[in-house]
């Protein structure tokens, strides 16, 4: 008898199998988020916003009220929802381009205003939906379509350290962490705490999730896993950077 792994209850079975590429990390991040939603019992009051880029493919991923916005603009839409209806739990789901480049002003200002929302940013070191260009998170030397000879830091700068920046500018009550799809249980714990932090009304919550993009990395399964598990954490260290509710062990 074949036993399929259990889908989170908050997933929308009608949209499965999901629309992401084989080997993409989005499915794992959204599985961890789905489990966190189930455990917290907030499917009825969660509003999920997804950005442009691969994250938009999550527009019907959950059986929760969902709005797909514009590139970089998911954070303000979720801020607007939360300000109008504070009893709702809002999640802004975006990629590294949306959060750190075109929408960075929204991330910075939501963090400094201590907006009671949860931002989840998927870092796969490139603009994937548009065909693999350099992202704010592309690591030095990494080849992309717009850095075909590798990211030259003298010309193209260094990778953006998002959680470190958010931890610095945010206030007491903020929860900031960086997880990875390579450490699923830890990532799920972070996501759950980020939602709990919002539900407790403590402050802004921000999770960066290191993720995979074999399509644009042009890597096989082994290389993909090695990149996310070994290479990426050298530039993007995992862990909690701010934790009003207590540190995750």
């Amino acid at each position: 008898m074949e036993i399929l792994p259990k889908m989170p209850k908050s997933w929308n079975p009608a949209s499965k199998p999901h629309k992401f590429c084989p080997g993409c990390g989005h499915g794992l991040v959204l599985k961890a988020l789905g489990q966190a939603i189930d455990e917290l019992g907030i499917q009825d009051r969660l509003v999920f916003g997804c950005d442009i880029g691969c994250s938009l493919l999550a527009w019907d991923f959950f059986n929760v009220d969902t709005v797909q916005t514009h590139h970089g603009r998911t954070t303000p839409v979720m801020v607007g929802i939360k300000r109008a209806r504070p009893e709702l739990v809002t999640v802004a789901y975006m990629g590294d381009g949306g959060g750190y480049a075109i929408g960075s002003q929204h991330l910075v200002n939501a963090a400094t205003r201590n907006d009671i929302i949860t931002c989840i940013l998927v870092n796969n070191t490139n603009y994937a939906m548009t065909g693999g260009q350099m992202a704010p998170t592309t690591i030095p030397g990494q080849k992309t379509e717009t850095t075909p000879y590798g990211r030259d830091v003298a010309e193209a700068g260094y990778p953006m350290l998002g959680p470190e920046m958010v931890a610095t500018i945010s206030h007491e009550g903020a929860y900031v962490a960086r997880g990875s799809v390579a450490k699923f249980r830890q990532l799920k714990g972070y996501l759950k705490k980020a939602l709990e932090n919002q539900m407790a009304g403590r402050g802004f919550s921000f999770i960066e999730a290191l993720s995979t993009c074999p399509t644009n990395w042009r890597t096989n399964a082994e290389q993909t896993w090695a990149f996310v598990e070994e290479t990426m954490p050298k530039y993007f260290p995992l862990g909690e950077l701010k934790f009003p509710g207590g540190k995750e062990e």
């Binding site: 303000p76 607007g80 709702l88």
Partner: peptide, 12 residues
Amino acid sequence: SAGFTTIGGVLT
């Protein structure tokens, strides 16, 4: 942000 937050408010 003013436009997108307004959209958020209207959505609720």
